[in-house]
């Protein structure tokens, strides 16, 4: 070992680095078993934006890689819950991850809305990986103008 250090001071370090990189690759393989594909639910993804006017709410989220019918949107008074499962790409034979940054797995996020909404009048669209949900205040909750009768 000593001679290795004398010949090439970084050689031992290089070897160590190589080993730890291989270890990372092995761990990847272990966790990415395409058969189990179980994932932990994730709280921080996707991220949401929320827009309002007096009677409507627009909620948007960037959730690329899904089909429209794979997204569940539930409305319960003033709570909106969005859930889905983003499948990890299937690894072909002999294929491995060199880098992995994209979210995959199941998520469920609940947003508290500024006011209760009418489920019947709400609609959700999914275009190019962006989810847009439009929610409306129920008629009964909308501000009404009362006519004042004389007498």
């Amino acid at each position: 070992m000593l001679s290795v250090h004398r010949n090439h001071p970084w050689q031992a370090f290089d070897k160590l680095m190589r080993n730890s990189m291989n270890l990372g690759r092995d761990l990847d393989r272990m966790f990415l078993n395409p058969l189990t594909r179980q994932r932990d639910s994730f709280a921080g993804w996707p991220q949401f934006n929320l827009w309002t006017n007096d009677d409507e709410i627009i909620v948007t989220a960037e959730v690329p890689g899904l089909e429209a019918d794979q997204i569940d949107v539930d409305i319960n008074n003033n709570q909106l819950t969005v859930s889905a499962t983003v499948e990890a790409p299937e690894l072909a034979e002999g294929e491995s991850y060199q880098r992995r940054e994209r979210f995959s797995g199941s998520f469920e996020r609940t947003l508290r809305l500024p006011f209760a909404v009418d489920q019947e009048k709400s609609e959700a669209r999914y275009v190019d990986g962006v989810l847009e949900i439009r929610l409306s205040k129920p008629e009964r909750d909308k501000p009404r103008k009362l006519s004042v009768k004389a007498g």
Partner: peptide, 22 residues
């Protein structure tokens, strides 16, 4: 954007999250 890079003997595949882009 976030990216997955898959490597195999005959190709490298990039999968890039570009929400809102066609």
């Amino acid at each position: 954007p976030h990216v997955d890079i898959l490597d195999s003997a005959d190709k490298v595949t990039l999968r890039v999250n570009l929400p809102g882009v066609n």
